[in-house]
Computed example of a mutant assay.
Amino acid sequence: MHAMWRGSVSFGLVNIPVRLYKATETGGIHFRQLHRDCRTPITYKKFCPRCQVEVGQDEIVRGFEYAKGEFVVVEDEELTAFQGRRAETIDLVQFADAGEIDPVMFQSAYYLAPEAGGKKAYRLLWKALQASGRVGVARMTLRNAESLALVRASDAGGEVLVVHALAWPEDVRSTGELPYVREAVDIDANELEVAETLIRQLTKPFVPNDYRDESRVRLEAWIAERRGEGGTEKPGVQATGEVVDLMEALKKSVQLAKQAETSQPRKRRQRKTS
């Protein structure tokens, strides 16, 4: 796993040297664009329309457009110098209950791992967060952009500190323009009771490994068929229908949930052997 950032976590007067790793990766099937005639992958060139030349990476600079066609040029070194210490530090500025942070603010997730000299301080922070049930709110600079971040203790696969980049409050879109969400709707008490029954029926501990990307599996199988002779079958598309009777649909959903529960084979308990 490649570390994408090295710096420190500032915890009061304690600085914990750490490395930052991306916690997730983009899976699924990726398609490339080809020239239909010869099936050669299409390439993209960075081109200056004014000079009519292809531009190399060393000829490109950052620019902020403050007016139409007017830019302020910012060199990478200038931006790093301006950001100063924040460019390499995750500053914990407060602690809070995780439930106080709206999940809509959550963006990318990262793992933190300590450097050799920061193992004890890293473990101390992890244990303190775990015992308190709190999360840390921090300021973090990544790829020359400062963001809010949440730091939490995770015990999935080890005692690991996880960082979630958060959107700034001003970047979260308002729900004011969403249609119908503020209209009053009469909910029948019986419908609500059946809906709550369905929720209870489908409630169980969340185990991530119980889920897989079924669409990816089907697509891989379809592509494998296409590579063989006569493989021209299209991927299956599930039909959808309009729900006419809400109560009837809820009752059938509860019935199906019960049938699914009773049809699942129960796991036998393994006897312990000494």
Rank of each mutant, 00 (worst) to 15 (best):
M1S: 15
A3L: 11
A3V: 09
V9N: 00
G12A: 05
L13G: 06
L13I: 09
L13K: 02
V18E: 01
L20M: 11
Y21E: 10
Y21F: 10
K22V: 08
T26Q: 15
T43D: 12
T43E: 14
F47V: 06
C48A: 07
C48S: 07
P49C: 04
Q52Y: 08
Q52S: 13
V53N: 14
E59T: 02
V61M: 09
A67Y: 03
K68H: 13
G69N: 07
E70G: 05
E70V: 06
E75V: 03
E78W: 03
L79E: 07
A81L: 08
E88D: 14
T89C: 04
F95E: 01
E100C: 00
P103C: 02
M105W: 00
F106R: 00
P114E: 02
G117E: 10
K119F: 05
W126G: 00
A131M: 06
G133H: 01
M140G: 05
S147R: 05
S154K: 01
D155M: 10
E159V: 07
V160Y: 09
V162T: 06
V162R: 01
V163K: 00
H164F: 13
W168R: 07
P169K: 04
P169G: 04
S174Q: 07
E177L: 12
L178I: 08
A184L: 13
V185K: 12
D186V: 11
D188T: 02
D188N: 08
N190M: 15
N190Y: 15
E191F: 07
E191M: 09
V194S: 02
V194A: 02
I199H: 04
K204H: 13
R216V: 10
R216N: 14
V217M: 13
V217D: 15
L219D: 03
L219W: 04
E220F: 07
W222Y: 13
R226S: 13
G228W: 06
G231N: 07
A239W: 12
A239N: 14
A239Y: 10
G241I: 09
L250C: 02
K251S: 09
K251W: 10
K252A: 12
S253E: 03
S253M: 03
V254M: 04
Q259I: 09
Q259W: 05
A260F: 08
E261Q: 14
E261A: 15
Q264G: 12
P265H: 08
K267L: 14
K267M: 13
K272C: 07
S274D: 12
S274E: 13
